[in-house]
Lab assay of single mutants.
Amino acid sequence: DLSALRVEEVQNVINAMQKILECPICLELIKEPVSTKCDHIFCKFCMLKLLNQKKGPSQCPLCKNDITKRSLQESTRFSQLVEELLKIICAFQLDTGLEYANSYNFAKKENNSPEHLKDEVSIIQSMGYRNRAKRLLQSEPENPSLQETSLSVQLSNLGTVRTLRTKQRIQPQRTSVYIELGSDSSEDTVNKATYCSVGDQELLQITPQGTRDEISLDSAKKAACEFSETDVTNTEHHQPSNNDLNTTEKRAAERHPEKYQGSSVSNLHVEPCGTNTHASSLQHENSSLLLTKDRMNVEKAEF
C-alpha cells in the first residue's frame, strides 16, 4: 500500500496539472479547448457565450486583445492532455480508494470495455495498479461463464418462442383441414349439385314461356288486323247491294208514291245487322237523297 506522504505528493502534482488545464472563465477543466490569436485557451462554450454578448469583436479576458469567431481554432494537443489527466485522476481514485477533492464528473469518461483496460497499462506502473489488474484478471474467467449461461438462457427462450410460433402455425392448418373434411358430406355435395341443376332447368323453362307469350301476342295482333281488313271488305261488298236497293226503291216510288213515303220513313230507323257505323252513315245519306228525289217527283206529278 501507498504511504500517506506519497499520496499527498501525487495529489499535489495532480492539482498543479489541473490548474494549468483549467479554463480562466469557468475555472474547470477545459472541455473542447479553443485557442485565440494571443495563444490563450478557453472552453469553446465559454468563448461563444462571451462573443454573443456583444456585437462585433470582444476582448480576451487575459490580455484584452480583440477576439472574433473566425480567429478561434481548435487545439487537439490540449484536448489530449486533458484526457490523460482524467485517466490519471481515475487511476488515483481506484488505487487509494479516496475521492479526489477537486474531482469532476468523471463517470462519463469511464469505460469498462476490454480495449480501455489494455490502455490503462500505459498509465502508471504502481503496486495498487498491479493489484487491481490481478483482481480484474481473476474476475475475467467468471465473466465468460456468466456470458455462457446468459447465452444458453437466451437460446432456450428463443427455442420456446420458436416452438410456440410453430404450434400457432400448425393449429390453424389443422382446424382448416378439419373444417374441410367435416363441413360438407358427400350427400350434401350431391344435393347441392341437384339443386343447381334444377335451378338451371327452371331458368331454361322460364325463358321459352316468355317467348311463347310474345308469339301469342303477335298472333293476336295479326288476327285483329285481319279482322279489321275483313270488316272493310264487308262494308265494300254491302255498298253495291245498297245501291241495288236504292234503284228498286226509286222504281217503286215512281209507281206508288204514297205507299213509299211511309216505308221510307220506317227504313230510316232500321239498321242492317253486321255493318259498322260507317255503313250506317252512308245509308242515312242515301235515304235522305231518296226522300228529296221522291218529293221532286211528287211535285212534278201535281203540276
Rank of each mutant, 00 (worst) to 15 (best):
G210V: 09
Q171P: 15
S264H: 06
I89C: 05
E9D: 04
Q205R: 14
L203H: 08
R212H: 05
L151C: 12
S150L: 05
K87R: 10
S71G: 05
S139Q: 10
S79G: 15
V34F: 02
Y100R: 07
D200T: 07
Q147W: 03
R251Q: 05
T235I: 11
T160H: 09
T211K: 08
I206M: 04
Q53P: 01
S58I: 02
C46R: 01
N15S: 13
G274F: 04
L158E: 14
V270L: 13
M296G: 05
F92Y: 08
G210L: 11
Q11R: 14
Q73P: 05
S139A: 13
K192M: 13
H40C: 01
L137G: 05
E9H: 07
K49V: 04
K250G: 07
L137H: 13
C43I: 00
N234V: 02
H284L: 11
S58F: 01
D231R: 13
Q80H: 10
F42D: 01
L146F: 02
L290N: 09
Q18L: 05
N52H: 13
R295G: 09
E8W: 11
E249C: 04
T275C: 08
V270D: 15
H284Y: 07
S152C: 09
K37P: 08
E140K: 10
I41L: 14
L203Q: 11
L245R: 13
G128N: 05
L5Y: 08
K55W: 02
D231F: 10
Q283I: 15
K87M: 01
P144C: 08
E8N: 07
F92I: 03
K87D: 11
I20A: 04
E148L: 06
M296P: 01
R132F: 13
Q73V: 15
T149Q: 06
Q261L: 09
P172H: 08
E120V: 06
R174L: 00
K250N: 09
S145Y: 06
A4F: 10
N102L: 13
L282F: 15
Q93K: 03
E22C: 02
K134R: 15
V190L: 02
D188Q: 09
Q201G: 12
N246S: 13
D294W: 12
C46V: 00
R77M: 14
I30S: 13
V190Y: 03
S288R: 09
V161H: 09
R251C: 15
D39I: 02
P257M: 03
K64W: 00
K31L: 04
N267K: 06
E8A: 09
